[in-house]
Design a protein around this nucleic acid. Structure first.
Lengths: 247, 247
DNA sequence: CGCGCTGTTGAAACTTGTCAAAGTTTGTGG
DNA sequence: CCACAAACTTTGACAAGTTTCAACAGCGCG
């Protein structure tokens, strides 16, 4: 615990918290803001929270008061069904915003759970609204973020409503690949942070089906997969599976 | 055409367009605004559009510039899949807001089609943003509306991801019943505005399956159904089917 | 170092989709 | 206003895809 840079031992660092010096500035809420405006955001986003693997940022039913920008790590959001099962509604990675489900009813409607040790920036919502009344570009950007969440959900709805198991998993892998690429990671090789069961829950499939399709893709030379390690070998054919043309 | 009150012959009536005198005031955007503030909304929402059955308000790809509040009638929204099929992502009735999918990319991402002759109020989006920078209650209400759309989509995702055909149709009927009730119509008797195929597309089922489940529900005494006319006979059991307790 | 969680694989069962045919309603043009 | 065509709905038989149940293997944490 005497290591100078041990994340858990060092107290919250005001310098690192600042949006203005954050590496995710181009991927997060400050997109399109001027230096001045990002400076103002800094006064709004002053708190960062460490969320250990398996822990929640918030739970369904909890009072809504803030949005959370993923600073590092990986999350799932799940909703509890009436009969006790829960279903994964999304996975979130660095630069993405969590908690927008809570605005409508002042209570969160899902759980946000860390799939690995993670950090989030806390954005008090009333202050975000206040600030977005003053800064048009932030206001508009926030509206875009919410709108994109709606569009993303429509994408999942079409996936669940009209694709077969293979198409669903192909779409899932292509989507992950794109998001990792956008963050500067390899487009073709990554580690899954979630279990087969969580993938299945998200895709509306049972874990056995997910496992089988992984095996099928591997035997067909589309991917190589060993537990959580995935390598995409034939991206064009994977994209063809979901009806998209290769780029 | 000389009838004094023929809707189609009379030009847009400024008095009727006003939010302040609109019967949907409690179900639409003006919720929670003061008299003064609703007065301001009036200056924003000056245009109403008649949309004939089968016609679009907007299409996927079209430039986004306004939201649309359903004044009367019934709409479906559909997204076009890569392989040419389209899937229904939602149905909208009076008081509900359409077009929020377009904010994120400045283009609409789905089609909004009238299922019967309808009317919508046009809400220019840049003016809505302008106004919501001035009126906190409107700003907050608009955020709530977008958030609820996200929560609604999550509901559809769980429906598509983990319910069987019967549960899906039961959930669909219960949801319709609730929405009709909230608008002052009968909770137990209504006309479907959409075809079996559109219901199926929304629920991730084929039209034959929808038809079969309707027949099954009828034979079990849960509902009575004749073409588009539905009467809910045993609402508690219908709710039990989807894991909810009867109210 | 073993126990539990996670992942893989097989066979059988079940749900839903596909194809086909016929009935019903709606819309249109004569 | 009627007749006809098109669109929509219902129903049956069969096929396909996915889940269920079960057994076992591997990895990782305590």
């Amino acid at each position: 615990m005497s290591l100078p840079n041990c994340l858990h031992a060092v107290p919250m660092d005001r310098v690192n918290v600042a949006c203005s010096s954050c590496g995710l500035r181009q991927a997060c809420l400050p997109i399109g803001l001027t230096e001045d405006e990002v400076g103002k955001l800094d006064s709004l986003v002053t708190l960062r929270r460490v969320v250990r693997k398996g822990k929640n940022i918030y739970r369904a039913g909890a009072h809504f008061e803030a949005l959370y920008a993923v600073r590092s790590g990986f999350f799932k959001t799940t909703v509890l069904l009436a009969d006790g099962r829960d279903q994964v509604t999304g996975f979130s990675m660095a630069g993405e915003l969590l908690g927008m489900d809570g605005i409508g009813s002042a209570k969160h409607t899902c759980d946000a759970v860390a799939l690995e040790d993670s950090e989030v920036c806390v954005i008090p919502f009333s202050r975000l609204e206040e600030f977005s009344r003053e800064v048009q570009s932030l206001q508009h950007h926030f509206h875009k973020v919410m709108s994109r969440e709606i569009v993303r959900d429509h994408g999942v709805m079409t996936l669940l409503g009209s694709m077969r198991a293979e198409e669903r998993l192909a779409a899932f892998l292509v989507n992950l690949s794109q998001r990792f690429t956008a963050r500067g990671y390899s487009p073709s090789e990554f580690f899954l942070r979630m279990t087969r069961e969580e993938i299945g829950s998200y895709l509306g499939l049972k874990l056995e089906t997910v496992s089988r399709v992984f095996s099928k893709f591997q035997s067909e030379g589309l991917i190589s997969v060993q537990q959580k390690h995935v390598r995409i070998i034939d991206s064009p054919r994977l994209r063809q599976l979901i009806g998209q043309l290769p780029p």
